[in-house]
């Protein structure tokens, strides 16, 4: 059976000042119904771009190639009208910055209800009732009062709850959460992650959680994909990835998670060097310049994403860490 979301050979290039800047290079991935997938990578690795492309949200100067299918139907390059049949209802997105992601001059109630008016053909009155009910479900206190408030009257955490509620109104099959906690206070982050997990259990939808923070992704996802310089470098079940990462980059990322147990380290471990800049030659393994295990071959021959044993564990490395 075809997976719920199927991305094949997706590439995104930006034209800027006459230069082609690649952001995503031939990424293929699939998300099954009810599955929870984490996408991890540092800033600029292309993790957000993949899903923005799928949602048709990229800027006009982005050239997208490849194929994206949702529920068996093509959604890439089909035009806004066709895309809107699933976008915002069955396929929804929660954005990084709740401070700027809600329209400032519309009340919370209007911004929630319009989704149902648009997609489910409900009357405004029905839609508002459903919206109020949803605010209650995502644990926004005093939903009645919040309905008539404007975004600036809500805290960041509450706004993100509103964003999550908005994404769930039409009982989506897949929610893409793009760094949903990055802009929030640490104490609020845990609540939001918790809420996403609870809602997923209650509604049974699939979830893609994009984050640069492996710690955030860890508890919430079944499977994790690691991206580096526009490509997937490793993919494995969440537990397996944490126990035995095969790609040196993943291993370095895991070392960067501060631990509460064990001996206290003098310094936070960090990754040395810089990710490749746009326009750098795209030869061999993009991680080679920062990799302790790199050999001459790594700089000339690109390692393909191959099975690495274990349950669907795949890695793109000539010299993976031993399992």
């Amino acid at each position: 059976m075809e997976p719920l979301l199927n991305i094949e050979d997706l590439s995104v290039d930006y034209t800027h000042g006459g230069m082609e800047i690649p952001a995503v290079r031939q990424v293929s991935l699939a998300v099954a119904a009810r599955e929870s997938v984490g996408i991890v990578g540092e800033s600029g690795s292309g993790k957000t771009q993949v899903f923005m492309a799928a949602m048709g949200l990229l800027a006009a100067n982005a050239a997208v190639r490849g194929r994206v299918r949702f529920e068996g139907g093509d959604i890439l390059g089909v035009g806004a009208e066709s895309l809107n049949r699933v976008r915002g209802s069955k396929l929804t997105m929660v954005f990084q910055d709740p401070m700027t992601s809600l329209t400032p001059h519309l009340t919370i109630g209007t911004q929630l209800a319009e989704v149902l008016v648009c997609h489910a053909g409900r009357s405004w009155r029905e839609a508002r009732n459903a919206a109020r009910h949803m605010l209650d479900r995502v644990r926004v206190p005093e939903p009645e009062r919040r309905m008539s408030q404007y975004p600036h009257e809500l805290s960041g955490g509450l706004r993100q709850r509103v964003m999550i509620g908005m994404s769930l109104l039409c009982e989506p099959l897949l929610v893409i959460a793009d760094e949903p906690t990055t802009a929030l206070d640490v104490t609020v982050q845990a609540h939001i992650i918790d809420l996403l997990g609870t809602m997923r259990r209650e509604l049974g939808m699939a979830l893609v959680l994009i984050s640069h923070d492996l710690g955030v992704v860890a508890g919430l996802t079944d499977r994790i994909l690691v991206m580096y310089a526009g490509r997937i470098v490793e993919s494995a079940g969440a537990a397996e990835l944490f126990q035995q990462a095969r790609h040196p980059y993943t291993a370095e990322l895991l070392k960067c998670i501060p631990s509460l147990t064990g001996p206290r380290q003098q310094r936070m471990p960090t990754l040395l060097g810089q990710p490749p800049r746009p326009g750098d030659p795209d030869e061999g393994c993009a991680f080679a310049p920062r990799c302790a295990r790199a050999a001459p071959r790594c700089r000339t021959v690109r390692p393909p994403l191959e099975d690495a044993g274990g349950s669907a564990h795949r890695v793109a490395c000539h010299f993976p860490l031993p399992s």
Partner: peptide, 26 residues
């Protein structure tokens, strides 16, 4: 180019609604 217009588009609203309801007033 603002984030809230991106949200409005991601909600699957028709362009007319995005422009008239979300973009025009600001």
């Amino acid at each position: 180019r603002s984030h809230y217009i991106r949200t409005a588009i991601a909600k699957g609203l028709p362009l007319r609604t995005v422009i008239l309801r979300h973009a025009l007033r600001p």
